[in-house]
Protein backbone atom coordinates (compact mmCIF):
# COMPACT_ATOMS: atom_id res chain seq x y z
CA UNK A 1 0.00 0.00 0.00
CA UNK A 2 1.23 3.49 -0.81
CA UNK A 3 2.24 5.48 2.26
CA UNK A 4 0.05 8.54 2.78
CA UNK A 5 1.73 11.95 2.87
CA UNK A 6 1.46 13.85 6.15
CA UNK A 7 -1.11 16.24 4.68
CA UNK A 8 -3.23 13.41 3.29
CA UNK A 9 -3.18 11.65 6.65
CA UNK A 10 -4.29 14.89 8.35
CA UNK A 11 -7.27 15.09 6.00
CA UNK A 12 -8.13 11.41 6.54
CA UNK A 13 -7.89 11.61 10.36
CA UNK A 14 -9.65 14.98 10.48
CA UNK A 15 -12.55 13.64 8.44
CA UNK A 16 -12.94 10.62 10.73
CA UNK A 17 -12.78 12.73 13.90
CA UNK A 18 -15.11 15.47 12.68
CA UNK A 19 -17.76 13.13 11.35
CA UNK A 20 -17.62 11.09 14.58
CA UNK A 21 -18.07 14.23 16.68
CA UNK A 22 -20.97 15.23 14.46
CA UNK A 23 -22.72 11.90 14.96
CA UNK A 24 -22.19 12.13 18.74
CA UNK A 25 -23.51 15.70 18.82
CA UNK A 26 -26.65 14.61 17.01
CA UNK A 27 -26.99 11.61 19.31
CA UNK A 28 -27.22 13.92 22.34
CA UNK A 29 -30.77 15.22 21.65
CA UNK A 30 -31.89 11.76 20.48
CA UNK A 31 -30.62 10.24 23.74
CA UNK A 32 -32.42 12.96 25.74
CA UNK A 33 -35.69 12.04 24.03
CA UNK A 34 -35.30 8.39 25.01
CA UNK A 35 -34.01 8.98 28.54
CA UNK A 36 -36.71 11.48 29.48
CA UNK A 37 -39.37 9.85 27.30
CA UNK A 38 -40.25 13.02 25.43
CA UNK A 39 -40.62 13.95 21.76
CA UNK A 40 -39.65 17.34 20.30
CA UNK A 41 -42.51 19.68 19.56
CA UNK A 42 -42.10 19.44 15.80
CA UNK A 43 -43.92 22.52 14.61
CA UNK A 44 -42.04 24.95 16.85
CA UNK A 45 -38.85 22.99 16.26
CA UNK A 46 -39.13 23.69 12.53
CA UNK A 47 -39.96 27.33 13.21
CA UNK A 48 -36.98 27.63 15.56
CA UNK A 49 -34.68 25.98 13.05
CA UNK A 50 -35.97 28.13 10.24
CA UNK A 51 -35.28 31.27 12.28
CA UNK A 52 -31.75 30.19 13.17
CA UNK A 53 -30.17 27.72 10.77
CA UNK A 54 -30.17 29.56 7.39
CA UNK A 55 -28.28 32.56 8.74
CA UNK A 56 -25.77 30.51 10.70
CA UNK A 57 -25.24 28.08 7.83
CA UNK A 58 -24.56 30.96 5.45
CA UNK A 59 -22.10 32.53 7.91
CA UNK A 60 -20.57 29.11 8.57
CA UNK A 61 -19.99 28.44 4.86
CA UNK A 62 -18.28 31.80 4.38
CA UNK A 63 -16.22 31.27 7.54
CA UNK A 64 -15.06 27.89 6.31
CA UNK A 65 -13.81 29.27 3.00
CA UNK A 66 -12.14 32.26 4.72
CA UNK A 67 -10.56 30.53 7.70
CA UNK A 68 -9.36 27.19 6.28
CA UNK A 69 -6.51 28.80 4.26
CA UNK A 70 -5.45 30.73 7.38
CA UNK A 71 -5.71 27.90 9.92
CA UNK A 72 -4.10 25.15 7.87
CA UNK A 73 -5.55 21.64 7.56
CA UNK A 74 -5.05 20.21 11.07
CA UNK A 75 -5.93 23.54 12.65
CA UNK A 76 -9.16 23.75 10.63
CA UNK A 77 -10.46 20.32 11.62
CA UNK A 78 -9.84 21.17 15.27
CA UNK A 79 -11.03 24.78 15.19
CA UNK A 80 -14.33 24.03 13.52
CA UNK A 81 -15.06 21.47 16.24
CA UNK A 82 -13.89 23.48 19.24
CA UNK A 83 -15.09 26.92 18.07
CA UNK A 84 -14.04 30.42 19.20
CA UNK A 85 -12.02 30.82 16.00
CA UNK A 86 -11.67 34.56 15.48
CA UNK A 87 -11.39 35.45 19.17
CA UNK A 88 -8.97 32.70 20.20
CA UNK A 89 -7.77 29.95 17.82
CA UNK A 90 -6.77 32.10 14.86
CA UNK A 91 -4.93 34.78 16.89
CA UNK A 92 -3.15 31.96 18.72
CA UNK A 93 -2.10 30.32 15.44
CA UNK A 94 -1.04 33.65 13.91
CA UNK A 95 1.12 34.46 16.92
CA UNK A 96 2.74 31.01 16.76
CA UNK A 97 3.53 31.38 13.03
CA UNK A 98 5.00 34.81 13.70
CA UNK A 99 7.03 33.59 16.68
CA UNK A 100 8.51 30.69 14.69
CA UNK A 101 9.07 32.78 11.58
CA UNK A 102 7.43 30.18 9.34
CA UNK A 103 5.05 30.76 6.44
CA UNK A 104 1.49 29.51 6.82
CA UNK A 105 1.82 27.91 3.36
CA UNK A 106 4.71 25.65 4.35
CA UNK A 107 4.47 22.29 6.09
CA UNK A 108 6.35 23.78 9.05
CA UNK A 109 3.60 26.42 9.22
CA UNK A 110 0.95 23.70 9.05
CA UNK A 111 2.35 21.81 12.06
CA UNK A 112 3.08 24.97 14.10
CA UNK A 113 -0.48 26.20 13.58
CA UNK A 114 -1.89 22.75 14.47
CA UNK A 115 0.19 22.63 17.66
CA UNK A 116 -0.88 26.12 18.77
CA UNK A 117 -4.56 25.42 18.09
CA UNK A 118 -4.44 21.97 19.76
CA UNK A 119 -2.78 23.38 22.90
CA UNK A 120 -5.24 26.26 22.96
CA UNK A 121 -8.19 23.85 22.60
CA UNK A 122 -6.90 21.59 25.38
CA UNK A 123 -6.31 24.52 27.75
CA UNK A 124 -9.73 26.01 26.98
CA UNK A 125 -11.50 22.70 27.53
CA UNK A 126 -9.71 22.12 30.84
CA UNK A 127 -10.38 25.66 32.09
CA UNK A 128 -14.08 25.26 31.24
CA UNK A 129 -14.13 21.92 33.13
CA UNK A 130 -12.55 23.63 36.17
CA UNK A 131 -15.14 26.40 35.83
CA UNK A 132 -18.02 23.90 35.69
CA UNK A 133 -16.74 21.89 38.68
CA UNK A 134 -16.09 25.01 40.75
CA UNK A 135 -19.01 27.09 39.54
CA UNK A 136 -20.37 27.75 43.04
CA UNK A 137 -17.22 29.35 44.52
CA UNK A 138 -16.14 30.90 41.18
CA UNK A 139 -19.38 32.63 40.20
CA UNK A 140 -19.14 35.53 42.72
CA UNK A 141 -15.44 36.05 41.85
CA UNK A 142 -15.73 36.03 38.05
CA UNK A 143 -19.01 37.92 37.91
CA UNK A 144 -17.71 40.65 40.23
CA UNK A 145 -18.74 44.00 38.70
CA UNK A 146 -15.19 45.33 38.99
CA UNK A 147 -13.90 42.68 36.53
CA UNK A 148 -16.79 43.08 34.07
CA UNK A 149 -15.13 45.82 31.92
CA UNK A 150 -11.96 43.74 31.53
CA UNK A 151 -13.86 40.81 30.02
CA UNK A 152 -16.05 43.13 27.93
CA UNK A 153 -12.94 44.52 26.24
CA UNK A 154 -11.18 41.26 25.44
CA UNK A 155 -11.38 41.72 21.64
CA UNK A 156 -9.88 45.25 21.53
CA UNK A 157 -7.15 44.12 23.96
CA UNK A 158 -6.40 41.15 21.73
CA UNK A 159 -6.43 42.86 18.35
CA UNK A 160 -4.37 45.84 19.52
CA UNK A 161 -1.35 43.63 20.17
CA UNK A 162 -1.96 41.32 17.24
CA UNK A 163 -2.53 44.30 14.93
CA UNK A 164 0.88 45.78 15.77
CA UNK A 165 2.62 42.45 15.11
CA UNK A 166 1.04 41.95 11.69
CA UNK A 167 0.41 45.46 10.41
CA UNK A 168 4.04 46.46 11.04
CA UNK A 169 5.21 43.61 8.79
CA UNK A 170 2.69 44.26 6.02
CA UNK A 171 1.95 47.96 6.40
CA UNK A 172 1.75 48.64 2.66
CA UNK A 173 -1.17 46.29 2.10
CA UNK A 174 -2.75 47.15 5.48
CA UNK A 175 -3.42 50.86 4.88
CA UNK A 176 -6.36 50.58 2.45
CA UNK A 177 -8.34 47.89 4.36
CA UNK A 178 -7.84 49.61 7.74
CA UNK A 179 -9.01 52.97 6.38
CA UNK A 180 -12.01 51.34 4.70
CA UNK A 181 -13.00 49.40 7.82
CA UNK A 182 -12.64 52.45 10.08
CA UNK A 183 -14.93 54.50 7.84
CA UNK A 184 -17.48 51.70 7.52
CA UNK A 185 -17.59 50.78 11.21
CA UNK A 186 -17.74 54.41 12.40
CA UNK A 187 -20.39 55.62 9.98
CA UNK A 188 -22.58 52.57 9.27
CA UNK A 189 -24.69 51.90 12.38
CA UNK A 190 -25.54 48.34 11.28
CA UNK A 191 -21.92 47.33 11.70
CA UNK A 192 -21.31 46.22 15.29
CA UNK A 193 -20.25 43.23 17.39
CA UNK A 194 -22.93 41.08 15.77
CA UNK A 195 -21.88 41.79 12.19
CA UNK A 196 -18.08 41.91 12.46
CA UNK A 197 -17.94 38.22 11.51
CA UNK A 198 -19.59 38.98 8.17
CA UNK A 199 -17.11 41.79 7.49
CA UNK A 200 -14.07 39.47 7.81
CA UNK A 201 -14.51 37.77 4.41
CA UNK A 202 -15.57 41.07 2.81
CA UNK A 203 -12.44 42.79 4.06
CA UNK A 204 -10.24 39.78 3.23
CA UNK A 205 -11.47 39.89 -0.40
CA UNK A 206 -10.93 43.65 -0.53
CA UNK A 207 -7.39 43.31 0.83
CA UNK A 208 -6.57 40.55 -1.66
CA UNK A 209 -7.87 42.75 -4.49
CA UNK A 210 -5.83 45.77 -3.39
CA UNK A 211 -2.73 43.61 -2.88
CA UNK A 212 -3.14 42.09 -6.34
CA UNK A 213 -3.20 45.54 -7.93
CA UNK A 214 -0.17 46.67 -5.90
CA UNK A 215 1.66 43.45 -6.77
CA UNK A 216 0.96 43.85 -10.49
CA UNK A 217 2.17 47.44 -10.36
CA UNK A 218 5.33 46.39 -8.55
CA UNK A 219 4.50 48.38 -5.41
CA UNK A 220 5.00 45.38 -3.11
Amino acid sequence: MKKLSYMDSVHRDGTIWNLSVMVLLLAFPVACCFVFNVAPEWKSLLMGLFATAPMYWAVGAIETVTYVPMLGAGGSYLSFVTGNISNLKLPCALNALDQNGVSANSEEGEVVSTIAIAVSSIVTTIIIIIGVVMIVPLTPVLSAPVLQPAFDQILPALFGGLGVAFVSKNWKIAIAPIVLMLILFIFVPALNAGTVGIMVPVCALFTIGVSRIMYKKGMI
Binding site: T66, P69, M70, S86, L90, L94, S103, A104, N105, L155, P156, F159, G160, L162, G163, F166, V167, K169, N170, I173, A174, P177, I178, L180, M181, L182, L184, F185, I186, L191, N192, A193, V196, M199, V200, P201, V202, C203, A204, L205, F206, T207, I208, V210, S211, Y215, I220
Partner: peptide, 20 residues
Amino acid sequence: IFQAALFIGMIASFLGFVFC
Protein backbone atom coordinates in the same frame (compact mmCIF):
# COMPACT_ATOMS: atom_id res chain seq x y z
CA ILE B 1 1.19 38.08 -0.24
CA PHE B 2 -2.23 36.43 -0.65
CA GLN B 3 -1.82 34.74 2.72
CA ALA B 4 -0.73 37.98 4.39
CA ALA B 5 -3.69 39.77 2.77
CA LEU B 6 -6.10 37.22 4.31
CA PHE B 7 -4.62 37.82 7.76
CA ILE B 8 -4.61 41.59 7.34
CA GLY B 9 -8.20 41.53 6.07
CA MET B 10 -9.30 39.72 9.19
CA ILE B 11 -7.32 41.95 11.55
CA ALA B 12 -8.52 45.14 9.78
CA SER B 13 -12.17 44.06 10.26
CA PHE B 14 -11.65 43.70 14.00
CA LEU B 15 -9.72 46.99 14.18
CA GLY B 16 -12.71 48.63 12.48
CA PHE B 17 -15.06 46.92 14.94
CA VAL B 18 -13.15 48.52 17.84
CA PHE B 19 -14.34 51.91 16.51
CA CYS B 20 -17.97 50.92 15.91
